[in-house]
Design a protein around this nucleic acid. Structure first.
Lengths: 187, 187
DNA sequence: AGAGTGATGTCACCTGGTGCCATCACCCTA
DNA sequence: TAGGGTGATGGCACCAGGTGACATCACTCT
């Protein structure tokens, strides 16, 4: 019998998601999360930089996957095609965590503090994507604009996907959203 | 002789700007800001919701001015023309506070916490502008996209303006940036 | 068997932020 | 002119997020 249960990080994440969902983010204390996970406040802060970050752990992984998708796209791809490839990669990631997406999204939407954190993650993602686009030869200003727009499209699609009772695959929703953008830009 | 000096809010803002600039945001405590302004911590929090907000007071005013500019634009204006009108209004506001723009921008750029706050202000601004665009007949999704893009252009222009030693008027920098965007979208 | 290592607990501490009540200058009115 | 609002401020206690320093204990390696 080991002294410590395994997967402390995952237990903390589950406990946080549950408590934030039950009582709300602000009404939940870090000590309560830790207790529910069978740990202490101090240990919580060893795994997560702050009370918000527990909901965003893994966002670097999404960033890596979308950047990799841009890097791996065929040489013939247009800038918008590269964004499409990145969105396909995001689809894979979102479907992986499908079960948590809804509750997590609801919690974040309800708290300004968490929305702030989400926005800075989105900016970080857009910056990384812009770098990847530049490496693929997309011009500087266009790269930043395309990346930010791509992230905006992703959020729009995510919102639809997560609130859609039928739950069409994210990939399809995202592709539709991107096509809509294309029409808007053309029209 | 009155018990209180006038303009407590302005004094707190000046003290905060000075201290954040001298020591950095995180290294400055609210008690220190209050003391420098001849007040107490408790009073600081009567004027500002938190330690960050002292740098963002007045952002509703910018929002109002940009929205008003969209509402007042000639009926013949295109969506991009409406964004241009909003940027002109922003120019008026920025030139008003020209002397503080540089230090303030530097402080915000140096602190993730402050960047988060700036991002949520930008989102709020974009949302308000999108509403004004819709009221002017711009279609729903296009309105949101145009508004967010407009705010992005504003930030790009601001960055150039604030770091430019020659300090061309913001209006001119913003118009150039908008023209660049137009070319990108067309090309 | 003993030293080393890594995850955790414990404790003290600082700071942001809030609720509650006291204080005091000013204004208004009788 | 006395006295009762009123509004801005101070003072204080308190909670929660977050951190540094050190102790503890299971496990591993030699």
């Amino acid at each position: 019998m080991s002294r410590w249960q395994p997967d402390a990080r995952a237990r903390l994440q589950e406990a946080a998601l549950a408590l934030y969902g039950e009582r709300g983010y602000e009404e939940t204390t870090v000590a309560e999360i830790a207790e529910r996970a069978g740990l202490t406040k101090r240990t919580f802060f060893r795994y997560f930089a702050d009370k918000r970050e527990v909901l965003f752990w893994g966002s670097e992984r999404l960033e890596q996957m979308m950047v990799a998708a841009i890097e791996a796209a065929p040489a013939s791809a247009s800038p918008l095609g590269l964004i499409g490839a990145a969105l396909d990669a995001a689809a894979v990631r979102f479907e992986e965590a499908r079960e948590f997406a809804g509750p997590r999204h609801k919690i974040i939407a309800a708290s300004p503090e968490l929305r702030e954190r989400e926005l800075i993650k989105a900016t970080s993602l857009a910056t990384a994507m812009a770098g990847a686009l530049r490496a693929r030869g997309v011009g500087g200003a266009a790269a930043a604009l395309a990346a930010h727009t791509g992230v905006t499209v992703m959020h729009v699609a995510f919102e639809q996907w997560v609130t859609d009772p039928g739950r069409a695959p994210f990939q399809q929703v995202a592709r539709d959203a991107l096509a809509e953008l294309r029409d808007l830009a053309a029209g």
